[in-house]
Structures are given as structure tokens and as C-alpha cells.
Nucleic acid binder design. Structure first.
Length: 121
RNA sequence: UGAGUAAGCCAGAUAAUCGCAGGUAUAAUGUCGAAAGGCUGUAUCUGAGGAAAGUCCGGGCUCCACAGGGCAAGGGUGCCGGGUAACUCCCGGUGAAGGCGACUUUAAGGAAAGUGCAACAGAGAUAUACCGCAAGCUGGAGGUUAGAGGUGAGCUUCUCACUUCUCGCUUCCAGUAUUGUAAGGGUGGAAAGGUGAGGUAAGAGCUCACCAGCGGCAUGGCGACUUGCCGGUCUAUGUAAACCCCAUCCGGAGCAACACCGCAAAGGGACAUAUUGGCGGCCCGUCAGUCCCGACAGGUGGCUUGAGCCAUUCAGAAAUGUCUGGCCUAGAUAGAUGAUUAUCCAAUACAGAACCCGGCUUACAGGCUUACUCAUUAU
RNA sequence: GCGGGUGUAAUUCAGUGGUAGAAUAUCAGCUUCCCAAGCUGACUGUGUGGGUUCGAUUCCCAUCACCCGCU
């Protein structure tokens, strides 16, 4: 198991916001940009609109857990940023999983054949 | 049984699988390195709170040379005693306010040091005199006594009746550039002690009794203060979370502090022998040449053993202190605790450490324990 | 994390303890053939909760929201 590389600095996030493709879901917004490293890097953010620290931490944990499920099916060479949105209602992991898969497909960052093959076996 | 008061406790549990952070051990035939060791893997242990929150106080720690002296300014605190490293915190008490009560609340020094403010209303706002109540004076009306005059009647010296005038007394009414008074008067947050009796032209601490307040002495208490006695009636509006006075305390900045390593450190500019800066305002004293641009998106330490936690002994009314023994219990750096399943449960609220402690304040589902009060019923 | 600041009408701002004001905006009327401009009038309130005071936008305490800085 390889360790996940994360984006840290603000200028890295700004670069992806400005140049990358994005798609908004109900709970999260996804930004994707190709990089030249040959590996994938992710960033997760939750700003103050999401809520206080407990809510922000929970949103980040759920996104991180969902990413862990789909990590192997995302092609290398991409920078991905997940932004948690401010939602009034309660939500669980299952909804985040469903939405993340949908969003990854929308931005063409999901290896459907590998997913199907693994499911069949 | 119902209603309530006070103090304290818990903050979902268990099991399995996957996943995250840190410590320790280990590594062979993994990988990087000269090595120490790192990365990675494996095993094992540990892993958010009662408020971690707000950042409202107080400290530790670090730097400002030591954190020094004096003056000025500013700010905090403010019944008494104790506790504490310290506090504006805590404990106990005093006074005051609230509650039938258990009990609760309390920024509670000084208003006879001075200054300011008190809108509107009201006669008047820190002292006043509009109405009123009385006294005086003037005028009018009435009553009455005395004196004088006139008319009439009779027993004509004298008596009686009526009437006029003058003086005095008195009642009522009106007026007032007069005097007294502050008892009463639709106001107001507040009208300069309260109640009762005497007293007075009318009234008034004018006098007396009790109460309140003030002063003195004594008693009990470490003290705030309490209780008792005596004395003068001078009684003194409120506001100090208005200025202020008194007492007392306070140097500043904050772990993005600070130290070290690495990178960079070529050069340019500003002020300089009594200037500039440290030293937040001035003086003394003291230290150093100083600052800006070039030019910080790196790493390590600081970082968790501490005014620590648990049990216990003793002192104390308590806060708290103390003796003995045991324990080590997060330490990240875009920031770690999550997911799924099963069982129990009535159900899971407020909410996530970021240098560390002691408090305060605020948010909060539900449950439990102890002590006490009131009401009702039964014995 | 640490430090600092601000909340007044729909908007921009005044207001030093005594009935809270200006400009713009909105609405209505007048004026005009119509519109604009102009004139007149109306409307809307101290972030929230306590306390001090006779009385609080103002003074004190707590709380909420927003904004700024740090190397």
C-alpha cells in the first residue's frame, strides 16, 4: 500500500482551481488537473461555511474514507481537489460514496473497466 | 405522593473487519546512505473534553542587557478573615435585598474635600412660597355694651320704645407692594426625618415619648460588625458602572515567542558624536553602531513529568495544605479517532487538543446519587 | 493558534445620559401633453440579553455576527 500524496500549499490549490476542470455535486465539488509527476495527488478542503470544527472534520473524514475505496481505480497523473459543501441535512458515508463515483465519472477520472472486472471476479 | 432547594457524578458499552497518528521492538535475502541512521514492512502499546469553545482574568516559560531607580500618565481592584504560585478566582463570615421555607443574590470604600448632572411634570429641585392657613391694615354688612342728641308715650324730677352719631368688643364678606408659617395641595425617581400627644393666632423638633439616623462610651469578636447605655436635635436629596478622593496592585510582547541547522549573505540606500535604537512618555543609568531593500512557501528543537492523576494518613468549619504508596495518560503540523456489521439500550445533546496550567463565562440530550425544605394524606 | 477593531433606517453616515437625525432610495400627491428634474408628505431603527441610573444609542458585564493583521 502506497502512501497517499496530499496537496498542502495554497498556491497548489489555486493552480487547480484556476486551470482544472470541475463539477459540483450536492455534497462535494471536484476539481481535476493533469500533472507531470506520473502519480496522483489529492487535496481536501472544508471552509468555514461548512460549520464548526466538528462538522468540518467529519466532512473531511468521510471524503477521505470514500477516496480510499476508489483510489485504485483513479488513473495516475492527476491532481484532484475535493471541496466540501455546506449542507443543512445530515448525511452518511453511503451518500458520499455514491456521489463521488458519479463525479469521478463526470470528470473522466474513473477506470470503469477495472471496476467492472474486479466486481465480476 | 406532589412541588422545590443545594451539592456531586456519567457523557454510550461490547465484539469483529478495514483504515489513520505517535511511541517501542525488530528486519532476514527489501531500498537509500561511507557510516550513524532514514524510508518501507511486521509485531505490540497508546490515542480529545466537561466544557478541548469564548479568549474574559491570573500565572509558568521565552525574548526585550539585569527587569534596574525616579517622575508623570494610564489601567485594574474595592465589606471582613482565610486559601493559593497568582488572581477580578475559591472557602467561611458580616451587612443589605428576595423567598412560607430549604436557601439564593449581592461592582458592598468615600456624597459634612471639591466640581458636574437631575429632561418633562410641578407653586417649588436643593432650596422655594403659587394656592392655602393665620395675624395686621382698609372698606362694607350685622350684633352688642357705654355715652350724647332727637321724636313719641307715660305717673313729666324720671322711666320705656324707636331712631341717628361716636368709641370699644365681636361675627361674616371683599381687598392687600404688610407680617408669620411650612401642617395640607392633581406633580415627581426624589419635596429636607416617621407616628402619636402637648403647644400655638395659625403652625413648625417649638416641646415630650417611641422609632430611624448621627456622635460618644462600654461589651463580645482577629476583623467586617453586633449588643447595651448616654447625648444634641444640627438630619445630611440622588448619582462615584459622572469627573474625582482615599487605599492597594500593575514594565512590554507573545510558542507565528525564542534557539539552532540549512539556503542566502554580491551589492545598494538612510542616519551617525551626541545622535539612532533597545527602553511603548520623560530623566538617570546601561548596552549596541542601527535600520531598510536585495531576501525565507525549508528543517530540527521548543513539545509534554506537570502548581500532574489515583488511593490513603493527619490538620482544618471549609477552600486547602500535608504523609505514604502507586501510575505515566495525545503531541499532530493543511493538522490524527472514521466506516461497516451484530448485540444491549428509551435515546445520544453541546461539541474536536495545537506551548502548558489555575479560574471565570457561555452551549448542552438524557440519566443517576446524596442531603434538606414545603404541602397533602395515613399511622 | 495569537493579537486588534466594528455593529444606528433598505444603503452611506451623524448623534458626549433626557421624545434618535441628515442625504440617497421606496411609496403617495402636486407640477408636465408624457418622462426626467423640482416641491410637499409618508414609511422604515440603536446586533442580542442582563445590570447601574428616575431615565441608556451613550456607562458596565456577558454573548452573537462581521472585518483586519501576524512570517
Amino acid at each position: 500500500m502506497k502512501k497517499t500524496v496530499t496537496l498542502k500549499k495554497n498556491y497548489e490549490f489555486v493552480r487547480i482551481y484556476k486551470r482544472g476542470r470541475f463539477f459540483a455535486g450536492r455534497y462535494i465539488v471536484i476539481y481535476v488537473l493533469k500533472n507531470s509527476l506520473g502519480a496522483k495527488r489529492i487535496g481536501i478542503t472544508a471552509n468555514k461555511k461548512v460549520g464548526k470544527s466538528v462538522k468540518r472534520n467529519r466532512a473531511k473524514r468521510l471524503i477521505r474514507e470514500s477516496y480510499r475505496v476508489y483510489e485504485d481505480f483513479i488513473p495516475d497523473g492527476l491532481d484532484i481537489v475535493f471541496v466540501a459543501r455546506a449542507v443543512e441535512t445530515e448525511y452518511g458515508l453511503a451518500m458520499i460514496l455514491k456521489e463521488m463515483k458519479f463525479l469521478l465519472k463526470k470528470v473522466k477520472a474513473f477506470d470503469q473497466e477495472k471496476w467492472d472486472g474486479l466486481r465480476r471476479s
